[in-house]
Amino acid sequence: MKVKACIYTDAGKKRAVNQDSSLIKVASAGKMGRISFVAVCDGMGGLSKGEVASCKAIRTLENWFHEELSLMLGIDEDKIWDVIEISWRRLLADINRDIRRYGKHRGICLGTTLTALLQIGRKYMLMNVGDSRIYLVSRKDVQKITHDQSLVQSKIDSGVMLENEVQNSQERNVLLQCLGHGSVPQPQIIRGDIRMSTTVVACSDGLWKTISEKELFRALCPQMCVTSEDMLEECKKLTMTAIDRKEQDNITVAAMCLEY
């Protein structure tokens, strides 16, 4: 398997500080082949020091990838995902505790979303807290595989609100869960298979609020991702389109094209 990857981020025209943080890691895992890991965290703009919260989460994930995951790769393939899930849940508790401790010592509230996907072979697992998103873009279609933990999404799920009402809702930025602001969140954790060449796209809400799935497909389907530079240019174009459409939030998009 070959992996091409890039990250593009922009503070936007309104915010002085970019409170998004992100990472992509690719490594060789012996008999398991190449493994890849992508994550995006969006510091909460309504709270102080959102950039500190998102950076803390990303740095913790990075350390986990280098230190803990490497020790797990010798585990039987039938059991490794259970072990990783247990590790992730502990990791989220640690991040939540550390961010809350930082805020308590300084008398401030801060928090962050977190969405991440780990790929090993043709399998993946993701975890999600908040409303950053992950899409899988194949040669045929695009699939959103995260589920927003937000007030408007809960109203859509219960039939109280329609999808086309979200854009004008005053509640569209209200999260039901985040890291660092309250008790340990209950993450969405799911597992799946990657059956063909696919581009994994992780992004903050600054991108997906104004960019359609059709536009994501046209820009980042595997057949368009010839080089990492091509991918970076397409991510930049998507970001500029979002800004042109009056998106005022920070925007981050991290993309990995997995070629099987």
Rank of each mutant, 00 (worst) to 15 (best):
R122Q: 06
L126I: 14
L126F: 12
M127C: 10
V129W: 06
G130Q: 02
G130F: 00
G130C: 02
D131R: 07
D131K: 05
D131M: 00
S132E: 08
R133H: 07
R133G: 02
R133L: 00
I134Y: 09
I134H: 08
I134F: 09
L136N: 05
L136I: 04
L136M: 13
V137S: 05
S138T: 15
S138K: 06
R139C: 08
R139D: 15
V142Q: 09
V142D: 12
K144G: 03
K144P: 03
I145T: 08
I145M: 04
I145P: 10
H147K: 15
Q149R: 08
L151E: 13
Q153D: 10
K155F: 05
K155T: 00
I156Q: 10
I156Y: 10
D157A: 13
S158G: 04
G159C: 02
V160L: 12
V160I: 12
M161T: 08
M161W: 11
M161H: 12
M161D: 10
L162A: 11
E163W: 02
E165F: 04
E165L: 04
V166Q: 08
V166M: 05
Q167R: 12
Q170H: 07
E171K: 14
R172P: 03
N173F: 09
V174Q: 13
V174S: 10
L176W: 07
L176M: 11
Q177K: 14
Q177P: 07
G180M: 07
H181M: 13
S183H: 08
V184M: 01
Q186C: 06
Q186W: 01
Q186L: 08
P187S: 03
P187M: 04
P187F: 09
P187R: 00
I190V: 14
R191W: 13
R191P: 05
R191S: 14
D193P: 01
R195Q: 13
M196Y: 06
T199R: 03
T199W: 01
V200A: 04
V201S: 09
V201L: 15
A202V: 08
C203S: 11
C203T: 01
C203M: 11
L207A: 11
K209M: 14
S212N: 07
E213L: 02
K214Q: 08
K214P: 00
E215S: 12
E215G: 03
E215I: 01
L216D: 05
F217A: 03
F217V: 01
R218W: 02
R218Y: 09
A219P: 07
L220N: 08
C221E: 09
C221A: 12
P222V: 03
M224L: 05
C225L: 01
V226D: 12
E229C: 14
D230F: 15
D230C: 15
M231W: 11
M231S: 13
L232H: 12
E233I: 02
E233F: 06
E233N: 11
K236T: 06
K236C: 08
L238V: 04
L238D: 10
L238W: 05
T241S: 14
T241R: 15
R245W: 00
R245D: 09
K246I: 11
K246R: 15
K246T: 14
Q248G: 06
D249V: 04
I251L: 10
T252N: 07
V253D: 00
A255Q: 11
M256P: 01
C257H: 14
C257S: 15
L258M: 07
E259M: 05
E259T: 02
E259R: 00
Y260R: 11
